[in-house]
Amino acid sequence: MRRDDRDDPFDDIFSEIERMMEGMAGGFDAGDAGFGGDAGFGGDAHVSVYETEEEIRVVADLPGVEKEDIRIKCDGRHVTISASTETSEYEERIELPARVDEHSASASFNNGVLEIELDRTGSSADIDLS
């Protein structure tokens, strides 16, 4: 027997809840390299990575974020950018296309745009076998 939803007194409520849930999950893309779609910044957060033979540059658009609310970490293979506003949190871990010297990093933040420059380093050190 098929259920007839036309007589369900809760149908409108469940439809509205479903619509709201779809709206909240709409920005999430499981294939995204970050931690979920728009990360609370209304789809305006965007990260690009540029590389030359000498350096790697990471550029992130962080609208509405103050300089003192940004945290940057690097382990030589990844850069993690964390930021927050009163209404949202943002964190993204970016895999770099090459190994970098994390101690060479410099960063600037101007008009909502974060730029991080990192010097490339050799692929790996040779180890002598004795």
Results as ranks from 00 to 15, higher is better:
26 G>A: 11
79 V>E: 00
46 H>Y: 11
48 S>I: 10
91 E>W: 09
55 E>C: 04
89 E>S: 14
40 G>V: 02
45 A>G: 04
37 G>H: 03
103 H>A: 14
84 S>P: 01
28 F>N: 13
39 A>V: 01
68 E>F: 03
96 L>V: 08
63 P>V: 05
90 Y>V: 01
97 P>I: 00
87 T>E: 13
34 G>N: 12
65 V>P: 01
28 F>M: 10
31 G>F: 02
84 S>N: 08
70 I>L: 02
67 K>D: 14
79 V>C: 09
90 Y>L: 15
49 V>G: 07
63 P>A: 07
85 T>Y: 05
94 I>T: 11
69 D>Q: 11
103 H>D: 14
64 G>P: 03
64 G>T: 02
80 T>H: 03
104 S>M: 08
51 E>D: 11
39 A>H: 07
87 T>S: 13
105 A>C: 06
90 Y>I: 05
30 A>M: 13
108 S>A: 14
30 A>V: 12
98 A>R: 08
46 H>T: 01
74 C>D: 11
105 A>K: 10
92 E>W: 04
61 D>W: 05
99 R>F: 12
108 S>C: 12
75 D>G: 04
78 H>E: 08
95 E>I: 07
34 G>V: 00
90 Y>E: 04
46 H>I: 00
32 D>L: 01
61 D>I: 07
93 R>Y: 00
41 F>D: 00
91 E>T: 13
103 H>F: 12
41 F>C: 12
90 Y>G: 05
57 R>K: 15
103 H>L: 14
75 D>F: 05
46 H>N: 14
38 D>F: 08
54 E>S: 14
72 I>C: 03
107 A>P: 03
104 S>L: 10
104 S>I: 11
48 S>R: 12
91 E>G: 11
88 S>C: 12
37 G>M: 03
33 A>I: 04
99 R>H: 07
101 D>S: 15
94 I>W: 04
106 S>C: 09
31 G>I: 06
34 G>A: 10
77 R>G: 06
51 E>W: 00
94 I>N: 01
94 I>D: 02
108 S>N: 15
84 S>F: 14
81 I>A: 04
53 E>K: 13
38 D>E: 09
65 V>Q: 04
76 G>D: 02
73 K>M: 09
27 G>Y: 14
79 V>R: 04
60 A>N: 12
108 S>V: 11
48 S>C: 07
35 F>E: 09
35 F>S: 06
59 V>D: 09
74 C>G: 05
65 V>H: 03
75 D>S: 02
32 D>V: 04
40 G>R: 01
48 S>T: 15
83 A>Q: 04
29 D>A: 08
29 D>I: 09
77 R>F: 05
51 E>Y: 00
89 E>W: 14
58 V>L: 15
29 D>M: 00
53 E>W: 10
56 I>P: 05
